[in-house]
């Protein structure tokens, strides 16, 4: 169990470092989504299932959808090289 904990913690840090370094904004948002999912597993390891349910629905679902819609509105979704 403790090995899983370490893996998850390191994964969270890696995602957090990688998310803003991605070249395309779409990739950044997807990596942030992965961070949210890892956090949801961490909550259930910390014995707070309420948090796990909410984080899985909110962090990986609603927040990412809002980010995607914003990307669509600011016309960054088509893979452009200039940004």
């Amino acid at each position: 169990m403790i090995v899983l904990e370490y893996i998850l913690l390191i994964g969270v840090i890696v995602c957090a470092v990688a998310a803003p370094l991605c070249k395309r904004l779409l990739a950044s948002v997807i990596v942030y989504m992965a961070l949210s999912l890892l956090m949801a597993v961490l909550w259930s390891l910390l014995q707070s299932p309420d948090l796990a349910i909410t984080e899985a629905a909110v962090g990986a679902g609603v927040t990412s959808i809002l980010f995607f819609l914003t990307l669509k509105k600011i016309r960054e979704l088509k893979g452009t090289d200039d940004e």
């Binding site: 957090a16 998310a19 950044s28 948002v29 949210s36 909550w43 910390l46 980010f67 914003t70």
Partner: peptide, 20 residues
């Protein structure tokens, strides 16, 4: 947009500290 993502990561950090 990346600033907002950074802000969200800060949020997650605080939640992690509190829950732990």
């Amino acid at each position: 947009l990346r600033k907002v993502i950074g802000f969200n990561i800060m949020d997650s950090a605080i939640f992690l500290l509190l829950a732990s």
